[in-house]
Design a protein around this nucleic acid. Structure first.
Lengths: 106, 106
DNA sequence: AAAACATATTGACAATTTTCGATTTAATAG
DNA sequence: CTATTAAATCGAAAATTGTCAATATGTTTT
């Protein structure tokens, strides 16, 4: 259960960097080649590659290799999984016993 | 639009730390006092306070002060906003012109 | 085969985040 | 009013993350 946290954190880290959010914005209009993404971003090629790895490892983005190019796109299954995971984090659990008392008594 | 990214990132950062994920897990069963959270976590009081600030600033958690205690709970509106925001990041935009070509021609 | 090109990897450094102990603030209890 | 208690803030250290230049890898073109 403890290691679940690490995996969960990994998914949401995909959305925690401004450059990655901009990359996702670019991919929302459809599949894009890495070289196209690089044109629109103010980062180096190696930095882009680093961010694409994080997005892919989180399952949010998929890379399709074609010759020397890689075409990236949003992965619908990974995206859906992220939404589901987020819902799990914030949905109240009505089955658990409610113990609202302070550990230090009033 | 650029600063939108920062605000978006701030929300998802709430879900990117293992301790914060555990805190949310504890809050899923209902409102909890900070002192109660501290009992269940293996972190110092100041570290807990730091994480609660991040969760509250992201709008995911709400703190209710009662005397010298603070009772924390998941904020349903903030949680809903996070889900909405996540959907915005990953939902394909069918209105945008699709230009899938490489910037470097084949 | 050699040159050119797109992307990935490496290594170093900068920036940010997490953590804790010490202190401060604010509230209650004696 | 003083002591005690819960939580926030501060300052510094440790850990993680983001960044780039240089280099490596794999592919295509000449």
């Amino acid at each position: 259960m403890a290691s679940e946290y690490k995996e969960t954190a990994k998914v949401f880290k995909a959305f925690c960097d401004e450059n990655r959010l901009q990359i996702l914005e670019l991919l929302r209009s459809g599949e894009k080649c890495a070289c196209k993404l690089l044109d629109d971003l103010k980062i180096s090629q190696s930095t882009l590659s680093h961010h694409m790895k994080i997005l892919c490892d989180a399952g949010i983005v998929h890379g399709r290799k074609e010759g020397k190019w890689v075409h990236y796109s949003i992965n619908p299954e990974g995206a859906e999984r992220a939404v589901q995971l987020l819902n799990e984090q914030i949905t109240l659990d009505i089955t658990d016993a409610q113990d609202a008392s302070c550990s230090t008594k009033k």
